[in-house]
Write a protein that binds this DNA or RNA. Sequence first.
DNA 1: ATGGTGGGTAGCCCA
Length: 265
Amino acid sequence: MKLRLATWNINSVRARIGIVEQFVKTYRPDILCLQETKVMDSAFPKAAFKKMGMHGIAIHGQKNHHGVATVAKSALPEMHKRDWCSEGDARHVLTPLQTARGAIDLHNFYVPAGGDVPNPDENPKFAHKLAFLDEMIDWSKDLKTPSIIVGDLNVAPLESDVWSHKQLLKVVSHTPQETERMKTMQEAHGWVDIMRRIKPEPERLYSWWSYRAKDWRASDRGRRLDHIWVSPELADAVSHMEVVEEARGWEKPSDNAPVIADFDF
DNA sequence: ATGGTGGGTAGCCCA
């Protein structure tokens, strides 16, 4: 049983429904996990996804900000949401999957970006981000079901996940406070970072390029903020992974590129 | 050192 899974921070699903369709047509994911949908559930463009052949739709949205959605070719009969940090934010949706390897929990996350100042005493957004990661660490310790975490975790954990390790050490997304928590979280469950299993360090591997660069491709000041992690027993099922950098150059792009993983269960 | 670009939505907030 082959399964193509993709994750993409889309920065408004309504503003970018055209390139979502382009992505689905070109890359044919069986399951697509979106973050920053920026739409209430009542206004989610369900019809457009059904037209693309994505009939399973699990959404957790809110007005204006954040919001996640997992869509799939097959039905997604079950979904669960969790209110991380009790903030009332739409940052997570769980869709249990039935595979040839049995039940697998697919968790789609949008971790808080954390603002600009990397000090939790001065910046409540950074404090929220650290608390969110701490909650994910505790949660990882107790997980029993084989699981997949995907999404925009807003942290680039490794040196070659950023264009300049030295210059980004004090920039939110690559501070030791964040990268150490990523490592602790991986150890708490045994999470396997399958992007790095396929393309190990020190190869350059980015999924996000700022809108503010004059020429994102030429300057290539990227960061790997988007991730696909799996429980240890699922690691050998991964046969392929790619960051679809091409999509960063499409018409009116998101600043994040999609990440694809192929599984053979 | 600074400000650069986007989306959502009604005034700035957030990324």
